[in-house]
Design a protein around this nucleic acid. Structure first.
Lengths: 240, 240
DNA sequence: CGAAGGGTTGATCAATTTCAATCGCGGTGG
DNA sequence: CCACCGCGATTGAAATTGATCAACCCTTCG
């Protein structure tokens, strides 16, 4: 099964194969977005449920002064806005970082699926808890980590997430994020990101070139980041 | 009805009075915590559901270097860890900021209530969405706001939340947060918080003395914060 | 070929931390 | 009753981090 969403759900709970195929069938409507194209904007009425199939997507918010803060990255298998129909309008925007293929499911269909398949609802709930843990980790990073620690921490997070969806061999990783995007995610300047990346390269920790990341010294990377994988609830996998 | 939790739920959905009293009955078991006492610690197995009745509580995380980042404030009416039984252990700690009265509900009972009363489940879901919106706003603040903007923004958030639970008249507010606590929440130094507070006082914007906050110029405060009430899904204008 | 976007670098500036000391006040034990 | 203690608040000076400003380079792409 090559559907990244199903694969992610299966990592949380085991799904009956007929449930899995019903979910997959519901994902047949697919949109393609170009890099920098918005899926939905702050202030819009809440739309359908999006599920990323391919490419990178982010949540972000623009401030009055024009600067941008990325709030989360969504990679293949990640869903968003599961239940936002309970509130009136988006408080942030969602944009494709790279060209992206995104499945679109109507809220009605999604509600049916959730109602009919408790295992699916459960998996979605777990997924949401993991996302919340990630947000908490971002708050901690922004508040209390220096820029090099922050960069290292984000790389650890993304490495682990890519690894979970099986998109990385051990020390190499496709990471199609420009320095500007990294800066927007980490609350820093592109210039400063550039210098930190250089420092990490000089230290022999990691190297990021044209969307390809090489982790030269994972131990050191984790140490710099002060990375605690618990927040991604890796233990969940082990239990299953 | 003086139960802050019920009052909060009612602000999201309307509850049948028998449902309300059933929920209230479930909240009969109450713990008292002293300031700085932990309700639950990072690494602990997930416990019962906590609902703050009185006082201030926070989520926080300690970093390897010993510094602390507060991730969220919980005020009367706020519940936490509704569904964390789906994951194995806490990825952060929860601590009383002031002396606090906290209702404790077993997960079994909570699940019964949620299953039996869709309106209650709905209200809890909305509440969770609001909390997520608040976390996103914190990420934005930490990433892209200067320290004075960050302070102003937090004050706006807290003012609005206190107002919602009816614990503030128009320009005054009980805000029992020390400068150290504010610093831990905003990712700053206590020294710097002190200077920013002084600056805000000098500007005639607001004043915080011994746990009492006076908003002298709400318009200016909102302007400094670049505050957008949308994320709390509430209107600010009619208030300030 | 030329333009645009992304990356790199140096110099300078500004915001915030760090360090260190002092103050005020409420609570406590003698 | 009162001196003392400890925490929170306050202030100044120095150090540091990261931002800003301003080029310039390289690659890609129309």
């Amino acid at each position: 099964m090559s559907n990244p969403f199903i694969r992610k759900l299966e990592s949380f709970v085991s799904l009956d194969s007929d449930v899995a195929s019903e979910i997959e069938a519901a994902m047949s409507s697919v949109n393609i977005y170009a890099a920098k194209q918005d899926l939905i904007r702050e202030g819009d009425k809440t739309g359908p449920v999006f599920i990323v199939l391919e490419g990178w997507v982010c949540r972000y918010k623009i401030l009055p002064n024009g600067s941008r803060q990325i709030i989360a990255f969504l990679v293949p298998g990640d869903a968003c806005d599961l239940h936002t129909d309970l509130v009136q309008e988006m408080d942030h925007s969602i944009q494709a970082v790279t060209k992206a293929r995104v499945a679109v499911i109507s809220r009605e269909r999604m509600h049916e699926l959730l109602d009919q398949h408790p295992s699916f609802a459960n998996a979605m709930y777990i997924s949401q808890l993991v996302d919340e843990g990630t947000m908490r980790a971002w708050i901690v990073s922004m508040g209390r980590r220096t820029s090099i620690e922050r960069v290292a921490h984000l790389i650890c997070e993304l490495y682990l997430r890519m690894h979970q969806i099986g998109v990385s061999d051990d020390a190499k990783l496709e990471l199609p994020l420009s320095q500007v995007v990294l800066a927007d995610a980490l609350g820093m300047t592109p210039v400063h990101i550039n210098r930190i990346l250089k420092e990490l390269k000089l230290k022999g920790t990691m190297e990021l070139n044209r969307g390809k990341l090489i982790i030269a010294d994972a131990i050191q990377l984790v140490r710099i980041a002060g990375f605690d994988e618990n927040y991604l609830h890796r233990r969940l996998e082990k239990r299953l």
